[in-house]
Amino acid sequence: MNYLATVLMLAIATALINNMVFHFFVGCCPFIGVSRKLDMAFGMGAAVTFVVSIAALLSWTFTYFILAPGAPLTTWLWRLLRPGSTAVVDLSILNYLVYIFVIAWAVQLVEMYVRKFFPALYKAFGVFLPLITTNCVILFTCLEIMKHVGPVPGSVPDPWGLDKALIYALFAGIGFLLAIVIMAGLREELEHCDVPASLRGPGITLVIAGILALAFLGFTGMDSSLARRLVPTAAPAAAPSAASAERPS
């Protein structure tokens, strides 16, 4: 399959089919808390998209070169300290600590940069920028990338390069942006409705989220049907094997 088709399928699968909010339930706290106004929701979504891309870049680099089993940098250092050792150096127990540190650092960096160079944008983001540190979307994306990083060939089933990791992160952020903007648009209309007193606030938001999740279920299977369309034109020679691999059971 050619590169563009791969990218397109990864994008659709991440943003629509496996939408962060409606499929994995990550980022539900801001999804419920910050979806009252459309402009705030858009700001939050944009900030998350931005931070998640930077965090993905950093976490992929750290995982590939330092943390993963057999990572080049740590292996080189270990060989330097213990010449002749053939042990596989594995620092993956530090993954979570490093990721959360990287995320906190990235948020801090983005905050400082935006405050210095885009004061208007900084004012629009307000308190949401520091809050992004504890946004599940970002850690979830880092963890998902972690599963696809293996410097030693064959150590993970589907290894991603930095390009794929960045595309995944970007579209994970865009999926979140899409979800929170749809929800904010609906909630602005909802202010004119007569909601039962006990469901006001989070209750009705979750009911709407349930219906939206049902709608997003409609995207299921879109990637495999797209693959069948894309594969024969893109790479005729590889078509039979790829088609048989894509067909669900």
Partner: peptide, 15 residues
């Protein structure tokens, strides 16, 4: 599936 989770939590919160 995901919709069931959202709806159950919503109704529980309401109750």
């Amino acid at each position: 599936l995901p919709p069931g989770a959202f709806l159950t939590l919503a109704l529980l919160l309401g109750a």
